[in-house]
């Protein structure tokens, strides 16, 4: 594995499978009475959040704590433009405190990349969502969830038909999912109004459609993306109602799905907008389970980035010996 996790494109197939397999092993810890492993004792993980995201921060915090790492939450309100401290000075401060890993959420695309490549810090950088760029651990937890439901919990996702619907243009979740799902062998179709697809999307390793209904009957996974109502004011679509009629997953559309098809959403949901409450709460919905899996996947990422090097000696990279978490 590379030293940082900045993009889903950083992961080749063996890396991606290693993370998913490790996450599966670590998931068992959550079922124990004592949900804690000593693996990262004495290591420091900093959650550096320049953007509010309680659910992602808590997920990383729980993951680090279950591995016995020391966790520092650093909520840096605003960025250097709003006259806070600059990213560089924040990074130098964290470095001086001895951070082994920095989990960063930032509104600027590429901020984790800057943190990792500018020589400001020595620790590993984990991208927890940067602007409209990527959110690789979200893609990993999505893949983990799909694998559990549709691939027997092992191996890759070859042949799986995944439909991702919504505001692709502004979605870091969509970008990371397209990249990771391609690596894992799934077939991805992006569905959105033309205004919410980036110029250049035709070069992505996936298909693109403006029509939701025709893609649903063959889908194994339907992933709905959050659509912010304020996109309306920038004329991306005429009204929330029209968006919902054309691209929302409601009860009628749910009837088009195959029996085994699962419905996913990275959250937070706009119930009644991109997804109807009946769908979100239906047995097909794995949305709550995605949250649970998020902790396991993030445990695996932190474990492999921080401890993986001393464990992989002389082996195929799979955790072995006394460092083995189980």
């Amino acid at each position: 594995m590379k030293r940082h996790l900045l993009s889903a494109a950083d992961l080749d197939l063996p890396d991606a499978l290693l993370i998913l397999d490790t996450a599966a092993e670590l998931a068992a810890v959550a079922d124990r009475p004592v949900k804690k492993l000593p693996t990262l004792r004495g290591r420091t993980v900093v959650n550096l959040f320049f953007e509010d995201s309680t659910r992602t921060r808590i997920s990383f915090e729980a993951a680090a704590k279950r591995l016995s790492a020391d966790v520092i939450n650093f909520a840096a309100k605003g960025s250097s433009v709003s006259k806070g401290e600059s990213l560089k000075d924040t990074a130098l401060t964290l470095e001086a405190m001895g951070a082994d890993a920095v989990v960063i959420r930032h509104s600027a695309s590429g901020a984790p990349h800057r943190l990792a490549t500018s020589g400001w810090i020595r620790g590993s950088v984990v991208n927890a969502g940067d602007g409209t760029h990527e959110h690789p651990t979200q893609a990993l937890l999505d893949a983990f969830t799909m694998r559990r439901h549709l691939a027997g919990g092992v191996g890759d996702l070859a042949g799986l038909d995944v439909v991702i619907v919504g505001d692709v243009l502004h979605s870091r979740v969509a970008r990371s999912n397209v990249l990771l799902l391609r690596t894992l062998g799934a077939k991805v179709t992006l569905i959105a109004p033309p205004t919410l697809l980036p110029v250049g999307v035709e070069l992505w390793p996936c298909s693109v459609s403006y029509d939701l209904d025709s893609s649903l009957p063959t889908a194994d996974v339907v992933m709905m993306l959050r659509v912010q109502r304020e996109r309306m004011s920038a004329a991306y679509f005429p009204s929330a109602r029209e968006y919902s009629r054309r691209y929302g997953l409601d009860v009628n559309r749910m009837k088009l799905l195959q029996p085994h098809t699962i419905v996913m959403h990275p959250g937070p949901m706009n119930r009644g907008m991109e997804i109807a409450a009946e769908v979100a709460d239906s047995p097909r919905s794995v949305i709550v389970e995605q949250v649970t899996n998020g902790v396991s996947v993030r445990m695996a990422v932190l474990y492999l980035l921080l401890g993986g090097s001393e464990l992989s000696d002389g082996s195929n990279g799979v955790p072995v010996s006394e460092g083995r978490p189980l």
């Binding site: 695309s109 590429g110 990527e134 970008r175 110029v199 250049g200 999307v201 070069l203 992505w204």
Partner: peptide, 15 residues
Amino acid sequence: QMNEGAMSALLGLTG
């Protein structure tokens, strides 16, 4: 933020 095209789509920067 940058030229609108394949790279801006990939990098998530406004074109």
